[in-house]
Computed example of a mutant assay.
Amino acid sequence: MRFRNKIDGSDKKRLVIVACFLFVLFCSIVVRFFHLQVTEGDKWQKIASAQHQIDVTEYFQRGGFYSNTDIKKDNPKEKVPFVVEVSKFHLFIDPHSIDEKYKLAIAKKLFEFFEFSVNEKEKIFCDFFKKSRSRKIISWIDREKKEEILRWWQIFSRENKIVRNAIFFVSDYKRCYPFGHLLGQLLHTVQDQKDPLTFQSHPTGGLELYFNDYLKGKLGRRIITRSLRHPLDVGDVIDKPQNGSDIYLTINHYLQAIAEEELEKGIKTVNAKSGWAIMMDPYTGEILAAAQVPFFDVRKYREYFNSEDLKETAKFKAAVDLFEPGSTMKPITL
């Protein structure tokens, strides 16, 4: 048997063609790999992350207003708030992670925790069928109600093998007024609905509007991973929220309460329609109390701004209304 020891020209040509083909194929694979991993790396990373992660907004705490507790040396130094932010929660769902056969049962159970109108129930139920990974369905939930919902959901999701963070909560803050209507016309309030893009509050007037730039905060961000192995609120804070600045007034809460009470008594005594009074420190010029009757209850601000009769009550008349100078002009005219 005889073997060919030499490679003829046609074989060399074939080898060169195969080698070139393999080289071109390898180069195209490298180029494609570079294109996917480097050029479009961010794009595919976002697509992959979107399937298992959700970017959740971390809300900031708007600055508050505090009383002047330094008018006497013996007064306590603790902070006494006129306005503070209290922690509330928004309930979100991930419709994609909830099987169709469980959506009605989950919606009905959530309705048992709250008192909703028929229209509100219909809107919430429709959100369960939206093509979305994150839908806010209920707002401004107390911590106790949140814990009650979580206890039910942990059992329900485990029994039906649903991803636990198909329902999750995002913390937020809402204005609270420990003294009720006290100093209402001067302070004012903010609207319940925040800006959908910046999540900043919309002041209705007063000091809330005047100091709005100082009271504002900055949003943060948190990443929540969707998985059967992860609990509801697991997430990494990638950008911490920055709270707004607090404002310390010269007004004292005790003096303000006394001024409003005595002013109300005086108006009833003389059968007047309204009145206001200012208490000032003559040595420093600091305003210690600014009372006005009828009161403006900022907790029910919608009722005042939706009524022509009550709208005037929301004004701080001592600062915005015009008055005749009266007897103050006598020294000049004489």
Rank of each mutant, 00 (worst) to 15 (best):
M1W: 12
M1V: 15
V24P: 02
I29V: 14
V31Y: 10
H35G: 02
G41F: 01
S49N: 14
V56P: 02
Y59S: 15
F65A: 07
N68W: 08
N68G: 01
K79H: 10
V83I: 09
F92R: 08
I93P: 00
D94R: 05
L104E: 08
K109F: 10
S117H: 04
V118N: 09
E122C: 08
K123D: 03
S132K: 12
I141L: 05
L150V: 15
R151Y: 06
W153V: 06
I155F: 06
E159R: 00
A166M: 07
V170W: 01
V170D: 10
R175A: 14
C176W: 08
D195M: 08
P196N: 07
F199W: 07
S201K: 00
P203W: 03
P203G: 06
L207I: 10
L207N: 11
E208R: 04
G217P: 09
G220C: 03
I223V: 14
P231Q: 12
I238E: 06
P241I: 04
G244R: 03
D246T: 05
Y248I: 08
T250N: 10
H253R: 03
T269L: 14
A272V: 13
K273H: 09
D281I: 06
T284V: 04
G285Y: 05
L288G: 03
A289S: 10
Y301D: 05
Y304I: 04
D309P: 01
K311W: 01
E312T: 14
D321K: 11
S327H: 03
L334Y: 07
